[in-house]
């Protein structure tokens, strides 16, 4: 096969992008990172330790470029791993170089800011790429970096995309990829699990106990599935890696590695006021709006959204959540 067909392009040199590059590099795959940071490009190209993830040794088969045209010429399969707040801008820049032959899957577990669109639609709106997909699930950058076994869901309407994804980023014994055609479900599940992570953080902060916590997580998956079904997705996606899997991992890791959404839930429980940007919070508002438009009742999500808006006090909200999760299956 040609070098272009064998090379994985990665947009974004954040923790996920760098960890995935290292994992694939160690498996002997050719990887090319596109980063705007000359410093990152220089570090990766020289095989030096990344300043962003000092514990990560980048294998020699991982390269990096800052020129988007060179990146587009050398790769066909692209993994997009940038922040949800910058994805539209980065995709617009990528759009100057890519064409219809490229394939892009993203690993962004959130809606794109500021309008809360699904990221795959942003890719198609900003670039010529139509063959898009998403990889989602409970794979933490630390697991990838350490080479621990993990699994992701790859979803795309195109079978070709999931096949290429499995061929290029599946690593025997370490990275197992499941496939699905339900891209809408996978993107919704992945983004919404961020919103429900806030609820679990809140519940933990209030010390509700493991039983109610488990009920809450189960209800969360069920609510996501109802919304997804109304939006044309498959319910099973929400009980899989992208939905329940993501929610469990985001609300299980604690201390300094805890996810921002989980930390936000804890902070709210401690009476702190929410200001600023959080992907889970945006997903809560977007999901709530979508639920209203589709006529779906989602009590937990509505409660989170109203707390974040300052419409509900935490004590009142906690009571509502507890009532809701124990009221109906």
């Amino acid at each position: 096969m040609s070098a272009r067909a064998e090379t994985v392009g990665i947009v974004g040199a954040g923790p996920f992008g760098l960890s995935l590059a290292a994992l694939l590099g160690r498996a002997g795959r050719d990887v090319l990172l596109w980063s705007r940071s000359e410093e990152v490009v220089a570090d990766v190209s020289a095989g030096r330790l990344s300043q962003r993830m000092p514990e990560l040794q980048m294998p020699l088969c991982v390269g990096a470029v800052s020129d988007v045209h060179e990146f587009a010429r050398r790769v066909r399969f692209i993994v997009v791993a940038v922040g949800s707040e910058s994805v539209r801008r980065r995709m617009h820049a990528l759009g100057e170089a890519v064409d219809g032959s490229h394939i892009a899957v993203h690993a962004i577990g959130a809606f794109s800011a500021p309008h809360d669109h699904r990221v795959s639609t942003v890719i198609s709106e900003e670039t010529a790429i139509l063959r898009t997909g998403v990889i989602a699930g409970p794979s933490m950058p630390a697991d990838l970096a350490a080479g621990r076994a993990t699994s992701l869901l790859c979803a795309s309407a195109f079978d070709e995309v999931t096949q290429e994804c499995r061929r290029l980023i599946g690593v025997p014994q370490i990275m197992r990829l499941y496939r699905s055609r339900d891209i809408v479900g996978a993107e919704l599940a992945s983004a919404l699990s961020g919103a429900y992570t806030i609820a679990v953080g809140l519940a933990d902060g209030l010390g509700v106990g493991i039983g109610i916590r488990s009920v809450l997580i189960t209800r969360a998956a069920s609510e996501m599935a109802r919304l997804g079904q109304a939006a044309g997705a498959e319910t099973k996606t929400f009980f899989g890696l992208a939905g329940l899997g993501n929610l469990l991992v985001r609300s299980s890791v604690q201390d300094e590695h805890a996810s921002p959404s989980y930390r936000l839930g804890l902070a709210i429980a401690q009476g702190e006021e929410f200001t600023g940007e959080n992907e889970g919070a945006r997903a809560a508002h977007a999901g709530h709006r979508m639920a209203r438009a589709l006529g779906v009742k989602l009590p937990v999500l509505e409660t989170i959204s109203r707390i974040l808006n300052g419409e509900l006090a935490v004590s009142e909200a906690a009571e509502r959540i507890l009532l809701t999760v124990t009221e109906e299956e």
Partner: peptide, 17 residues
């Protein structure tokens, strides 16, 4: 493409090679 940049349609039906 959706941004008004010209794109060759044949790219969409080409495989990895």
């Amino acid at each position: 493409d959706a941004q008004g940049r010209r794109v060759a349609p044949d790219g969409y039906v080409r495989d990895c090679e």
